[in-house]
Amino acid sequence: MAEKPAATRARWSLRRKLLLGTALVVVVLALALGLGLGLTLGKDNGGGDNGPQPTPTSAPLPSPSGSLPWKPKVNDTWQIVLLNNIELDSDAKSVTPNVSIFDIDLFDTDTDTIDTLHRLGKKVICYFSGGSYEPGRPDSDEFEDGDTGKGLDGWPGEKWLKLSSDNVRRIMKARIELASKKGCDGVDPDNVDGFQNDNGLNLTADDSVSFMSYLSNITTPLNLTMGLKNAGDIIQQVLPVVDFSVNEQCVANVECDTFHAFIDAGKPVFHIEYPNGAGDDLEDTTVEHYCKDEGNAKGSEGFSTVLKKMDLDGWVEYCDRNTETTAMNQTDPSH
């Protein structure tokens, strides 16, 4: 073959370099896309084959129906009454106090009361114990011997639950479905902090994180908002799948800074303290102790604070010194 002229060889060499450069770019892009795809497919939000995990995002996710569940906001006003069902006529024109949200018992509250609260423009969070057995509940006889551990201090007959139990989870699923059927806007599952107590079941923080993820997978399709009750040690792990905090006594325990992570994430902290003398108008110094963002209350800025009696009846005092009492029926509580 005749040798190419020098000019032709130069053009051929340049063309070959351009082709090689283009090929190199294609290879790099292909590798990058393949690596990104592999990382996406390999992500499991928790490691291993642990089944579906909640999406780690604090933004509201649509339910399968395409609608967005209600989400409470920072500084929303509220009242919590668990001792008895609140007394409210179906044709009531108002309810005391005039707050945005009522946290009331899932079992003790009838559907008519929830409907009336909705007609009055209120949102309803339904309370149930997610991590403890309570005697006297309608489904109490469904728990098995292996489901329960030690008793809860100060609550006779109440016992910690094994959160990984299939039977316990089945019962809690039914409770959430009942909340949806009754028309609750959200749920407040209590006692998910067994790992921080002498529970007799060797419960760990991972057990509570897994349990909250399980509950979230039920509430989301039902358009129910869900909160974390206390359990400050797992806030960072479950913050993406819960919409609010219900905290008891962070001032008394000097740990409000821990729960301020919710406020930082744009989610409210519904904060309860049980001061001595609750039930009567409290002293100014007492209210300031629990309501000012300083001293033992440091970190409580932005919290929706209520001062209550330990039995969580209708009496409440707010940080603005307003005292109200929600009327309750006079029947004995079922728990």
Rank of each mutant, 00 (worst) to 15 (best):
K4F: 12
P5N: 13
T8F: 12
K17C: 07
L18T: 13
L19W: 15
V26W: 13
V27P: 00
L29V: 13
L31C: 13
L37N: 15
D44M: 02
G48R: 06
P60T: 12
S63H: 05
G66V: 08
W70Y: 13
P72K: 05
K73F: 07
V74F: 04
Q79D: 15
N84I: 03
A92L: 06
S94F: 11
V95D: 04
L117K: 04
H118W: 02
G121Y: 02
K123D: 07
F128E: 09
G130D: 15
G131F: 11
E142A: 12
G146Y: 10
K159I: 09
L161G: 10
K162H: 14
L163K: 08
K173P: 09
R175W: 09
K181R: 15
K182A: 00
K182E: 02
C184D: 10
D185S: 07
D185G: 03
G186H: 01
V187N: 07
D188M: 04
D188C: 02
D193T: 06
D198S: 11
N199A: 07
G200R: 02
T204G: 00
D206T: 10
D207S: 02
D207C: 01
T220G: 11
P221D: 12
N223Y: 05
N230K: 10
A231N: 10
L239S: 07
P240I: 05
V242S: 05
E248F: 09
A252F: 11
F259P: 02
A265Y: 06
I272G: 03
Y274L: 06
G277I: 09
E283F: 11
V287A: 02
E288R: 11
N296P: 04
K298W: 08
G299P: 07
E301M: 06
S304R: 11
M310V: 14
D311Y: 11
D313C: 04
W315H: 06
W315V: 08
Y318C: 03
N329C: 04
P333M: 03
